[in-house]
Design a protein around this nucleic acid. Structure first.
Lengths: 166, 166
DNA sequence: CTGATTGCAAATGCTTTGCACGCCA
DNA sequence: TGGCGTGCAAAGCATTTGCAATCAG
């Protein structure tokens, strides 16, 4: 984890008159140990595996905090749970493509696209603060080749597929 | 409401071996009486006002049906409830701009943007099925002129603002 | 008739909250 | 020491579901 992240949270905490606690440290540590998306449940599981003791309530409360400090973003994957993305610090303008065959999420950036939406927004009389483009798509590999390693991996993990509650 | 909509549902119902019921008719009628977005709750209220008797459960079940028949789309407004958009029949590729000052939702279309994302998707090895671009933005009118009629309207209606649960 | 559909209430699943205790500043 | 933060369990909300009665075809 980059030092810049901890510093950003520390500043936020100080500015708000909040407190540094072991739980908050541990949660921050786990989240930014990878650049993977996660749900509150997944985060809790990672914490359990790492042997830390933060409760579910604290996890939710800390997520709100990190959201407010703009260290993570909420993203909508269409599976009925809120997913958090820790990757907006390194890639502030990235978007998501969700494969509806296997649920795989591909991140991508495109400056041309950003420019385009920025112009559109201004033309409508607004100033863009945040944008999220979500593309739902089917896998060409699966459609043409009959198989896709991501789908197999998803089945193995018993992953919850998009647009399917439960 | 255009006849094409009812026909589309009728076909769907026949094809699936389902049944035409007064509740489904009434819900369809109310939804397509306008091109406004709605939450399940708002729909239920409109039904109550119109004096129809469909229950909450039936509303939810019918929404799933209409979703499957592709007569409505789910859109994500970030206020903790699912919002439905009946306007994709007339405008299949439209996107949404949400004003974070007042919650107003502006719909817009842009073929250049569509082309752009289509190319991006193909380059990533996928085939786009659906895309949703949501822009969160602040109102220039409010920022520069100090007021915005949409904000006043939202306050009058006690509207739930985006990114605020409750 | 037969099976799809409905309404009701109970259940579900995610998230938030009230409260008493503990701990950071 | 004064609050903020935590854990727990209970509460909240939107949505889904089991079931018996009802209705469409």
């Amino acid at each position: 984890m980059e030092a810049a992240i901890r510093e950003r949270l520390d500043n936020f905490i100080r500015r708000k008159g909040l407190r540094q606690t072991p739980q908050r440290d541990e949660i921050l540590e786990i989240i930014f140990a990878s650049d993977e998306h996660f749900t509150p449940d997944q985060l809790l599981e990672r914490l359990r595996i790492a042997g830390t003791k933060a409760s579910r309530a604290t996890v939710y409360r800390t997520l709100s905090l990190l959201l407010e400090a703009d260290l993570i973003h909420e993203i909508e994957l269409g599976d009925g749970q809120t997913t958090y993305d820790p990757n907006f610090i390194d890639h502030p303008n990235h978007n998501h493509l969700v494969c509806i065959d296997c649920g795989k999420v591909v991140e991508f950036e495109d400056s041309h696209l950003d420019l385009q939406t920025e112009c559109l927004t201004r033309r409508l009389g607004y100033r863009a603060v945040r944008q999220s483009l979500r593309i739902e798509a089917t896998c060409e590999r699966l459609r043409q080749g009959g198989s896709c390693s991501d789908l197999i991996a998803a089945r193995v993990k018993g992953k919850r597929l998009p647009n399917r509650k439960k």
